[in-house]
Amino acid sequence: MATEIMTHPYYKVNVLTGSKGARIITEPEEAARIIDKAKTPLYVFGAEVIDTPVGDKLLIDYALQIAQSRDIPICATAHVKRKMLELQVTPDSVYDIIEIVHFLKDKDWTGVRGQGQHDLVLFTGVRCDLAERGLATLKHFAPHLKTFAICRRSHPNADYAVPIIAKGGKWQEYLAALVKTLGTVTPAA
């Protein structure tokens, strides 16, 4: 599908200064399709998942539901693991954000479960300016995979990004719809 160059993300410090930008996935159903098609996805959780509210839940609740829809391995960066253990989920990796990006750059790396390098990497909850740097690294140095920033502030350096969703209620709707649709598309063989 054709690549569009997005205009400004929510945070001006993340403005794109280049010729290759994210494709904006406005419909959560399309987001679900992209995730379902991946063969070896990975979900990277950043510290903000721990306590960012989304409606009456936390961001981590939605992120876990996304991950658990098809057993997507989770890399818990920063001190996210603590929260996950409270929720009785054990992450597959606790590499910190720069570490996991560093390994993802290596096309020969066998992934967090030793089952092969990942082809789609989801990111949620990493501080937005830091996330954008990590996405830029992968954009330039990891052509073997695609990235999807599941973040309502939007990320030009990802391959796929959620549009800016200003209202908390709409964000909750997006995530809920995404979770609902996940698992309904058979991954490619």
């Binding site: 794109l16 200064t17 280049g18 010729s19 290759k20 720069i98 990006v101 560093h102 750059k105 740097r133 990590g134 830029a136 690294t137 330039h140 140095f141």
Partner: peptide, 9 residues
């Protein structure tokens, strides 16, 4: 060296 380009240009 691990690079996180600030600018594509």
């Amino acid at each position: 060296p691990f690079y996180a380009p600030f600018c594509d240009l």
